[in-house]
């Protein structure tokens, strides 16, 4: 009898877990917010002076503020789509993203992990607002002319 009760309890736990998972899968992952790159498993961001902020807007647009070694932050934008945990998208210029990604939220949604679908690189981000000086000073390059994303203060 005891065994039966234990088995029933275990079955209930498994069922609950399965139902719970099913419920999670049905709810789209929400990665909207402002994220700051913490690490890449392939590039030492400190060594190369890499700093990246990604903003995923709820409307399917993303904005990217990145500094790669030299110069001020560069601004990119584009659109993204999340199907379950599968992230795809493209830049406004028409270029596809560097990869398709598998997204996951960790630490109660405080961290975002984007793993290239090919397994080639995994980057970890934390929720962090884009600093004002980055936001206002970033520059966007277009063939028709380089423009600041915001009006910058007198320097």
């Amino acid at each position: 009898m005891r065994k039966i009760i234990i088995r029933m309890f275990a079955a209930a736990v498994v069922l609950a877990a399965l139902l719970s998972c099913k419920k999670d899968e049905a709810r789209p992952m929400d990665i909207s917010g402002e994220w700051h790159l913490v690490s890449s498993d392939k590039v030492d961001k400190e060594e190369y002076g890499i700093d990246v902020y990604v903003v995923f807007n709820p409307n399917g647009r993303f904005e990217l503020y990145q500094k790669i070694s030299e110069g001020r932050y560069r601004y990119f934008s584009g659109t993204y789509a999340l199907s379950g945990s599968h992230l795809t998208g493209s830049y406004s210029s028409g270029s596809p993203l560097a990869s398709e990604y598998e997204a996951s939220l960790e630490n109660g949604g405080a961290e975002l992990v984007l793993a290239a679908s090919s397994g080639a690189e995994t980057c970890r981000y934390v929720r962090e607002a884009v600093p004002d000086e980055v936001f206002t000073g970033a520059v966007e390059f277009r063939s028709s002319g380089a423009v600041t994303s915001q009006v910058t203060p007198w320097l």
Partner: peptide
Amino acid sequence: ISVITRGVASGNNGWL
């Protein structure tokens, strides 16, 4: 031109 290699890269030099 300085080049850094990583696991993935976009053609427009965007990080994502």
